[in-house]
Simulated scan of single mutants.
Amino acid sequence: MTEPLIPGSHVAEVELQIDQVTVVNPDEATATVRCILGPARRGARFDRIRGSAGAIDLELTQILAHFGRSVDELDPVHTALVTLRGTGVELLTSATPRSGWQAIQGINPPP
């Protein structure tokens, strides 16, 4: 397991749990998420799905929280509607009682 902060940098690890996902096109999805490690900032890059070998390279491009207000970051335990763009959108899945929650992991951009 990696450390939450990469030594020698200000890049922190982030993780989002996906509740509902809508694939907008092959390179973009919107998802209702809960931040479980963060805060997750706009520009964060996600390169893995917890427990999966599937390759992703997704950027967090928009966060809509607090009744649809655009914000720059999402604090842990809070939920928001986010936009993710990049490779691997088709691997994202909505939570179901059978499958549980999918979580994507990555790092924030430098401050």
Rank of each mutant, 00 (worst) to 15 (best):
Q102E: 08
A53K: 11
A103I: 03
I63L: 14
P39C: 04
L81P: 00
G100D: 05
C35G: 07
A103C: 12
L58S: 05
T83H: 05
T87E: 07
R41F: 11
G51I: 02
P4L: 06
N25K: 10
P39G: 06
I56V: 08
L91K: 04
A12S: 12
A65F: 02
H66M: 13
A103G: 04
S99Y: 00
R85V: 12
P4H: 10
T79Q: 15
A103D: 04
P26Y: 00
S94V: 02
G8N: 09
I63Q: 09
H66G: 15
G88C: 06
F67N: 15
A40P: 09
I6C: 14
V23N: 09
A29V: 07
W101Q: 04
T83E: 10
I104T: 06
G100Q: 09
P39F: 03
P26V: 00
V23H: 10
P109S: 13
V77E: 13
S52W: 02
D57M: 04
R42K: 15
T96W: 08
A12Y: 06
P97Y: 09
G100M: 07
Q62C: 11
S94A: 14
P7R: 07
S70Q: 13
I63T: 12
Q102C: 03
I36V: 15
D72V: 00
E3R: 12
V33N: 01
A55G: 02
E3A: 15
T93L: 09
V77L: 11
I56F: 02
P76N: 09
V77G: 00
N108A: 05
A95Q: 11
C35Y: 04
G8Y: 06
A103M: 08
L84D: 00
T30H: 13
G68E: 08
A44T: 01
T87Y: 11
E13S: 14
G43Y: 04
R41S: 14
A95Y: 03
D19Y: 10
A44F: 01
S52C: 06
L58Y: 02
T79V: 08
F46W: 01
Q20C: 05
V21Y: 02
R34Q: 14
R41Q: 10
P97L: 13
H78K: 09
T32N: 14
G106R: 01
R69N: 12
A44L: 01
F67Q: 15
H10S: 15
R69W: 03
A53P: 00
L84S: 02
T32Q: 11
Q17T: 04
C35S: 10
L74P: 03
R34I: 06
A95M: 11
P110C: 10
L58H: 05
G106E: 02
A31M: 03
P76K: 04
D72G: 14
S70I: 13
R34T: 15
A65T: 05
A103E: 04
R85I: 07
I104H: 01
E13R: 13
I6Y: 12
H78F: 13
